[in-house]
Design a protein around this nucleic acid. Structure first.
Lengths: 145, 145
DNA sequence: AATAAAGACTACTTATTCAATAGACTTTGT
DNA sequence: ACAAAGTCTATTGAATAAGTAGTCTTTATT
């Protein structure tokens, strides 16, 4: 399951993506609008900022805005920042590889191979879906329904 | 991440799948062989049994064996027994649907749509991979290397 | 019939991780 | 100078996962 942290991160990015024409958005406003606990959101935004996805400005009139085009922010990368590995077992992780405690011989582990396939299938979606895509999908259905 | 419970479950099924020509295997033996805490394994096997995947026999000479052909035991179903939903968000789950707390309007939720795609991609692998496949993949590489 | 070898079931405890909160510090515009 | 923002680290509380314990039931063997 996705952590709340990750859900909040995605929601924040989507909100900032929609806010791109306007002046930077303050944490407090974002927290209220998206119903995210303020101090928790603060940490999340900080992580995203330190990873280069957000631009922030201190002081009066400050706030947060996207530091990249929404179309260049992929969910896979966000998940990795907030939740760590995408693979379901550490030994199948691309970016956070760790040996499984339970695993004797990784070379012949059928479980590992299967979960590498799962990881690839997951990434097929997540590393191609951007914040812009998520926004597009929302507004698309707004129009239809 | 997969829980240890699920990893243990898969390992147990694989071990029992390999043991299919022999008399039923006792919990204690299985626990030793697969390095799984005995009492924890006991619970796991019970779950798998109650779900119809294992046959068990009490008393002297008793033990556990598969109740289905290993080729008919799919990982997706096992995961659901031991870990619950496969989807990364409850609102995208096929078998364990629940509304997300954070979600206002599910109909237009871009996050939901994306994670339905992820779920489908994951199931594409997990609902086609059986215990027999896992075993095959192990022994296959035994031969090659 | 007695006994021992197994599994069945339920309850409990402990450890770990997640979610949230708190507070002191820094930067910047007016 | 001051207030409005973000920065950063530490701590607390809650939930879940992992593991443990103990008693009950069934069955094969003698």
């Amino acid at each position: 399951m996705l952590s709340k942290k990750t859900k909040y991160a995605i929601k924040a990015l989507v909100a900032l993506g929609k806010n791109v024409e306007n002046p930077p958005m303050q944490i407090v406003r974002l927290a209220e609008q998206e119903m995210i606990p303020r101090k928790f959101l603060e940490q999340i935004l900080l992580d995203l900022r330190n990873a280069g996805y957000l631009y922030s400005k201190k002081g009066a009139g400050g706030g947060y805005s996207l530091n990249k085009n929404a179309a260049d922010i992929y969910l896979a990368d966000i998940l990795r920042i907030t939740d760590g590995p995408i693979a379901m077992v550490p030994c199948a992780s691309l970016k956070f590889y760790r040996k499984c405690d339970e695993c004797h011989d990784e070379k012949t582990c059928g479980i590992r191979k299967t979960f590498i396939d799962v990881r690839d299938a997951t990434l097929q979606v997540l590393s191609r879906t951007s914040v812009a895509d998520v926004i597009a999908r929302e507004t698309l259905d707004d129009l239809i329904s």
